[in-house]
C-alpha cells in the first residue's frame, strides 16, 4: 500500500518537475503510437472493408488470419521485425533497427490485425438490407464503399481505438526493436520495465500512472467523437 501511495506521489512529482525526461518520453510515446496507429488504420480499414464486403478466393483465410493476428504476441512481432532489421538481416542495410521507425513497423504489425478484425466484424454486422438499399439507389462501387463505411463509422472508430490500445500498452516489441535507448526509443512502457529491473518500483508505477493518464486523454477525445457520431 505504501508503495502505491509513494507511486502516486512520485507520479505527481515527475509530472511537476519533468524529472527523468517524463515529458519527452510521453511525447515520444504519443508520436510513435499515433504513427503506428495511423499506418495500421491506413492498411487495416480498407482491408477490413474489403474482407467484409468482397467476394474473392482466400477471403475467409484472410479474415481468419486477421482474427488470429489479434492474439499476436508483441514480442513475437518484435522478434520478426528485429530479425529483418538487424544489420545481419535482409533489411539491415536500411539501418532502421533501434530507431523509432523500427518501433512503428513492429507496432503497425501488431495493430493492423486488430484494425482489420474489428473493422470487418463491424461492417459484417450491418443489416443485410442496407446493402440492397444502397445498390437500389444506383450507387457506384466507390459510392457504395463510402456509404457502407459511413454506416459502419462507429465500428471503424472502435477498430482504430483497438489498434491504438494494442500498441500503446505493449512493451515486448518496443523493447526488442527499439532497444529502450534513452532520448531516442524509450517510451513509457519500456521506461517502466527498466525501472522495474532497477528495483525502482515506485518510479515504475508512476510511469504506469502517466501512461494511464495519456490513454485516458486519448480515449476521452475518441469517445467524444464517438458520441457526436451517434447523435447524428
Amino acid at each position: 500500500m505504501d508503495l502505491l501511495l509513494d507511486a502516486l506521489r512520485e507520479a505527481v512529482r515527475l509530472l511537476r518537475t519533468g524529472d527523468g525526461d517524463v515529458y519527452s518520453i510521453t511525447l515520444r510515446t504519443a508520436l510513435i503510437t499515433s504513427v503506428s496507429t495511423f499506418v495500421a488504420a491506413l492498411v487495416g480499414l480498407p482491408l477490413g472493408l474489403g474482407i467484409a464486403l468482397g467476394r474473392f478466393p482466400g477471403q475467409r483465410a484472410l479474415l481468419a488470419m486477421a482474427n488470429a493476428g489479434t492474439g499476436l504476441p508483441p514480442v513475437v512481432a518484435g522478434l520478426l521485425v528485429a530479425v529483418l532489421l538487424w544489420r545481419s538481416g535482409p533489411l539491415g542495410a536500411l539501418g532502421l533497427i533501434y530507431t523509432p521507425w523500427a518501433m512503428v513497423i513492429a507496432q503497425a504489425l501488431i495493430a493492423t490485425p486488430l484494425v482489420v478484425s474489428f473493422a470487418a466484424a463491424g461492417v459484417m454486422a450491418l443489416p443485410p438490407a442496407l446493402h440492397l438499399q444502397i445498390r437500389a439507389m444506383g450507387a457506384g462501387s466507390a459510392q457504395y464503399l463510402w456509404l457502407v463505411a459511413r454506416e459502419a463509422r462507429l465500428a471503424l472508430l472502435v477498430a482504430v481505438m483497438a489498434g491504438f490500445g494494442g500498441v500503446v500498452s505493449e512493451v515486448g516489441a518496443a523493447m526488442m526493436v527499439g532497444g529502450n535507448l534513452a532520448g531516442e526509443t524509450r517510451v513509457l512502457t519500456t521506461a517502466a520495465v527498466l525501472e522495474v529491473n532497477r528495483g525502482n518500483f515506485g518510479t515504475a508505477l508512476a510511469l504506469g500512472l502517466i501512461l494511464l493518464l495519456f490513454v485516458i486523454g486519448v480515449s476521452a477525445v475518441l469517445t467524444t467523437a464517438q458520441a457526436r457520431v451517434r447523435r447524428r
Binding site: 488504420a41 463509422r153 482504430v160 475518441l222 447524428r232
Partner: peptide, 18 residues
C-alpha cells in the same frame, strides 16, 4: 462523417508528429 473526420485528424496529427 464525424468518424472520417476524426480519423483524418488522427492521421494529420500522425503526419505532423512524424
Amino acid at each position: 462523417s464525424m468518424a472520417a473526420r476524426a480519423l483524418t485528424s488522427l492521421g494529420m496529427f500522425a503526419a505532423v508528429s512524424l
